[in-house]
């Protein structure tokens, strides 16, 4: 039985770790034997606008790495919601960062989940872990997609030796995001 192809956009300010979040998904899925692609947007983005990446995870070879109509969006800041909510496929999952986004998404044909992602991260003493909280929420909401343990291992592979000492914190935020989304 083929698993569905996941077309995911992760978006936020530069520095919120959107590229790393995408890489973690790819590495975890790749270790699970699936085809993956990750591509950053490298256009002329405005300062204070969005940085984003497209991730495709599939049982087939990936055709285009650029996701035009995502089935999953993780929006870590306000411009990300504005940019990607209109592009989403009906029935898609939109996880938005309620700590920073003041204008909630409105579409009726999406599964919309608010997550206090930066708040969850701050409880671990850093504001830079909102990406991890959102990934944890995604794992909780997408049954059978990836496990927390697969992301644990991906963290060790993706993060440079210098930053690996932060992985225990990353893993705690990942789990806090998972719990918050499970409770919702």
């Amino acid at each position: 039985m083929m698993k569905p192809t996941e077309e995911i956009v992760i978006s936020g300010f530069g520095g919120q770790g959107v590229l790393l979040a995408g890489k973690l998904l790819c590495i975890a899925a790749m270790r699970g034997g699936r085809h993956v692609s990750h591509i950053p947007s490298y256009g002329a983005e405005m300062r204070g606008g969005t940085a984003n990446c497209s991730v495709v995870i599939s049982d087939e070879p990936v055709a285009s790495p650029v996701v035009e109509h995502p089935g999953v969006v993780i929006a870590l800041n306000e411009p990300s919601v504005a940019k990607f909510e209109p592009k989403m496929r009906p029935g898609g999952l939109l996880i938005w960062n309620s700590s920073l986004v003041k204008t909630p998404p409105t579409r009726q044909d999406l599964q919309i989940v608010d997550l206090d992602a930066t708040g969850i991260s701050l409880e671990e003493g850093t504001e830079r872990g909102a990406n991890m909280a959102a990934l944890g929420a995604l794992i909780a909401l997408r049954e059978g997609f990836l496990s927390l343990e697969a992301l644990d291992e991906a963290l060790d592979e993706a993060v440079s030796a210098r930053n690996r000492e932060r992985n225990p914190v990353n893993r705690r935020i990942l789990r806090a995001g998972y719990s918050a989304a499970s409770a919702a």
Partner: peptide
Amino acid sequence: GFLGQMSEA
């Protein structure tokens, strides 16, 4: 450019 920028296995 898409091939150059894309990460894959």
